[in-house]
Design a binder for these strands. Structure first.
Lengths: 106, 106
DNA sequence: TAATAATATATCCATTTATGATATATCAAA
DNA sequence: TTTGATATATCATAAATGGATATATTATTA
């Protein structure tokens, strides 16, 4: 895929979870619960992506987080990036639904 | 992510494009055009994924395809898989939109 | 008609991403 | 007090991705 910082699936899911400030473990749980276990991001992926998002300044570490519960949130940049990503994903979803809807035969 | 055959972004895009039978080059073009260039899948990724989807029997090679234009389409299995994926993606999109909508402050 | 551009499939290989396994520590509950 | 849940973190490996490149065909156009 193109563009410097492509938003991967996992990044998208994590950023989505962070539209409300959450700590890492809560992010994983939310995604797993929301998708009824169909998508699960393990700790390795999680913290890899968290690091990347921090460096990119799309998320921030909330002040007052102790080492036990590190709470992250989306920065304004992060929100903008997510908004754009939502638009692209909506487009593709629409296409998929149109396609699936129109074909009942083989 | 979990489950044997996780559907990646690129797979999803390609499968979406194949809700209507298309040959490889047309798939790439469609995705690039639809997303206004924001997502582009190169030939390397394309044919890697095509192979995988064929093996998985989520797509089939249409009879009568010559070596110049190999037309692929979704199998019933493929359609089912795509449908499920659409549902999960819809859920996450909804979450993202709710989250973005609700937060205007920092 | 010769050359050029667009169409189309295909693979090599380096890079980037993702992830299972594992470690460590804290807290709650039985 | 020990078991299970919560929570962060990393290593080593596996998987996915993409740029570059090769090759062939078809269409265009000078």
């Amino acid at each position: 895929m193109k563009s410097e910082g492509q938003i991967t699936d996992s990044m998208f899911y994590i950023m989505t979870a962070l539209t409300r400030p959450r700590h890492g473990y809560a992010i994983m749980s939310l995604i797993e619960e929301t998708t009824q276990g169909r998508i699960a991001i393990g700790p390795a992926s999680m913290y890899t992506i968290i690091k990347k998002l921090l460096k990119q300044e799309w998320i921030y570490l909330q002040d007052g987080s102790d080492s036990r519960r590190k709470v992250y949130g989306l920065t304004q940049q992060g929100k903008l990036a997510l908004k754009e990503e939502v638009d692209v994903r909506k487009l593709m979803l629409q296409l998929a639904e149109e396609g699936l809807g129109g074909i009942d035969n083989e």
